[in-house]
Design a protein around this nucleic acid. Structure first.
Lengths: 148, 148
DNA sequence: ACAAATCTCGATTAAGTCGATAGAGATACT
DNA sequence: AGTATCTCTATCGACTTAATCGAGATTTGT
């Protein structure tokens, strides 16, 4: 499965919320500006993440969004699943049944698609948002070293 | 990246050619019937595989297609690349440059997408068409065992 | 030379998905 | 009360994908 633009926006939004962990709700506008995301599109995305229980929202003045869990307990896989569905490389392996396949359940390729899907899952589920924030800080530190 | 219907057809077509290795050219119509592929669509696909050097064609009566290499030397990854391009999970990691990304080359997520892409590649490039044929024969043998 | 079967090539269409935007409504703070 | 913010649903255009078509080129066999 391709990582859609929407999922990338979602990742960046959650990443931005993680960087501001503990600073109270962050407005859509701020996230959008910090991460170069079309604001009205980001509305939809954050709403979807909220319905999935990944973020919480506060309305009214001084409202905005915040993570409902620690960034160290949110995996990239979760963000991806909430924004683009199950992580699988073919329709026939992600769903519940043997649909859209002329060889219902008895397909030579199914094990291959399943191995590929599990490989993807293991990468995405094995990386947390906190990992990503940490990696950025490390790299930034490296850049500072250079500049000294 | 999702495995498109076209790639799945291509896999099945190559698989069918592999099963008939050494039996001379196989007609589009036969492959289409054996693997439940729309014949006119299969034309396009086989043509593409031929241009990629994976299969050869014979025209005229008794014409058809045959593998240009042993099935044990054709990987699933090759078939996929010929029919749907480079194996990568995001535009920003498959192409040559840092395009379509607002953080040109300096993106926190790039390493993640690259790890995911390499995981996919290792699955697809590590499986040959001969492996798949072998797996089907094994399973068929198992079914026979049951019926005895 | 001819006819039939087959591949070759480019164009086209229909349907679906994706990215993005819009407007009207609900809620909370001051 | 008023304002700033989130909430929901609908919509739009562009693009991709799956599938089909027609006319042409090539080979085989007679």
């Amino acid at each position: 499965m391709i990582i859609t633009q929407k999922s990338q926006y979602a990742m960046r939004a959650v990443f931005e919320l993680a960087r501001r962990e503990g600073c109270g709700p962050v407005k859509i506008g701020e996230i959008a500006e910090a991460q170069a995301i079309p604001p009205r599109f980001l509305e939809n995305i954050l709403n979807q993440l909220r319905q999935g229980g990944l973020v919480e929202s506060r309305r009214g003045k001084e409202g905005g969004y915040l993570l409902s869990r620690l960034a160290s307990e949110i995996s990239a896989g979760e963000v991806i699943r909430l924004t683009q569905g199950p992580i699988c490389v073919a329709e026939c392996c992600g769903g519940t049944v043997e649909e859209r396949c002329p060889f219902h359940g008895d397909c030579v390729f199914l094990p291959l698609w399943e191995r590929a899907s599990r490989a993807l899952e293991s990468v995405y589920d094995g990386t947390t948002i906190a990992d990503l924030v940490g990696q950025e800080m490390t790299r930034h530190a490296g850049a500072l070293m250079y500049s000294i």
